[in-house]
Every structure is written in structure tokens, then in C-alpha cells.
């Protein structure tokens, strides 16, 4: 689900979102400059220490968020063992872990609305083509309706399974797309009912 901001209040929560994103960008770019495994290890350690600022539960949650990376770690590790270039493999893995952990940290300590506000500011030059308010609304709608649509998809899959011995699979793509359009129409009504996008 898309409630990524941690409810645990850390000192990092109080830093401005724009600053955190800028530091994150610099840090990640920096990771690609560094080649020494020692310095990469130190970078990763620094990120993990910052996780520690939020206490044990917060740090544990941060580590859990790294779990989806393990297939990449395994593939990169095995490949480099195969080619006999273990050091390069370790560098890549450390770099990846540090970059993703840092990005997760910013996500966990920044409210979504602040993140969107930064995006709105960055998108200011696009104003004639894309009014920032509309961009922000679009982002909010996506975040709001991803869980709603996945629920809708699950309902359709269940309706299929209720009357079929087979799994639903690709067969529900068309009905799901139509349901999404139908929902979109109702949401448009709700938006219009409260003043539209003007």
C-alpha cells in the first residue's frame, strides 16, 4: 500500500522536503563517483546509522523495505563470482543498497504532500502547459486510486473464479479496464461536484 511515510517521528521528519531530496540526489550521484568498497561501505553505514535515529522499530521497517532487493543482490553477486571479479560485485551491491536505503529513508521521513509541493515548485517552468495545481491533483488521484483499482481487480478476479474452475489471469484485463473507466467517470462527477479542476 502507498502509505510510505513512517508514523514514527524522527528528527529527519522535521527537515524540509526539498533539502532532503537535494541531498539524496547529491548522495546518489556521489555513490557513482566512489569506487572504493571501503568508502561505499562507510556510505551504507552512514545511511543505516541515520535509520537508527528513528529507533529500533523504524530501523527494522527500513531494513524490511530493502528486502525486495535480494534477487538483484543474488544475481549480481553470483555473476561477479562467476567472472572472478568479486570486488566489483561487492561495490555494485553496496552502491545499490546505499542508494535504495537512502531513498527509502527520505520517503519514510517526508509527508507525501510535502513531496508533491516540491514537485510543484520544480514544475513551475511548465506552468503554461501544465498548471502545477493540476499536476498535484493528478499525483494525488494516482496515489488515491491505485489501492481502489487493485481492490476492484481483486473483485473481478473473484467474480471470475466464482464461476470458473480456471484462474482469471489475462481474461479479466478487458473487464478491469472497463471498470476502471466506469470508476473514472464517477470520480470525474465527484470532482465536478466540488468545483472541478479550475
Amino acid at each position: 500500500m502507498l502509505t510510505l511515510t513512517s508514523p514514527v517521528d524522527t528528527p529527519l521528519h522535521r527537515l524540509p522536503a526539498g533539502g532532503k531530496l537535494a541531498v539524496l540526489a547529491l548522495f546518489t550521484a556521489g555513490l557513482f563517483w566512489i569506487t572504493s568498497p571501503l568508502w561505499l561501505t562507510l556510505s551504507l553505514a552512514a545511511v543505516l546509522l541515520l535509520h537508527g535515529l528513528g529507533g529500533a522499530a523504524f530501523a527494522r521497517h527500513g531494513l524490511l523495505l530493502l528486502r525486495p532487493l535480494w534477487p538483484f543482490v543474488a544475481v549480481v553477486g553470483l555473476w561477479h563470482l562467476w567472472t572472478g571479479d568479486g570486488i566489483a560485485g561487492i561495490s555494485i551491491i553496496l552502491r545499490m543498497l546505499a542508494a535504495v536505503a537512502a531513498a527509502n529513508l527520505v520517503t519514510m521521513t517526508t509527508r507525501l504532500s510535502d513531496m508533491i509541493a516540491v514537485l510543484e515548485t520544480i514544475a513551475l517552468p511548465l506552468r503554461p502547459v501544465l498548471p502545477p495545481r493540476r499536476l498535484a491533483l493528478a499525483i494525488a488521484l494516482v496515489i488515491r486510486f491505485v489501492p481502489v483499482m487493485s481492490e476492484r481487480l481483486a473483485q473481478i478476479a473473484e467474480a471470475f473464479r466464482a464461476r470458473s474452475p480456471r484462474r482469471a489471469g489475462w481474461r479479466i484485463v478487458a473487464p478491469a479496464a472497463l471498470a476502471a473507466l466506469d470508476d473514472a467517470e464517477r470520480v470525474a462527477d465527484a470532482l465536478r461536484a466540488r468545483g472541478g479542476t479550475e
Binding site: R186, V187, A190
Partner: peptide, 30 residues
């Protein structure tokens, strides 16, 4: 539409068709 906002509100049958924002305060503030 703008003048209508203070005159008339609609409560739709399905809240999931009415709630437009991911968080409670954004929904209220909109």
C-alpha cells in the same frame, strides 16, 4: 460551478467514488 459550491453539496452513494485524495486532511481541505 463556483457559486454552486456554497449552495449545494452532494453525498454520493459510494464513498470510494467521492473521496479524491489519499489522506483525510487533503480530502477535507480540497
Amino acid at each position: 460551478r463556483r457559486k454552486m459550491l456554497t449552495r449545494l453539496g452532494i453525498l454520493f452513494q459510494n464513498p470510494d467514488h467521492q473521496i479524491l485524495f489519499p489522506t483525510v486532511e487533503e480530502e477535507l481541505a480540497f
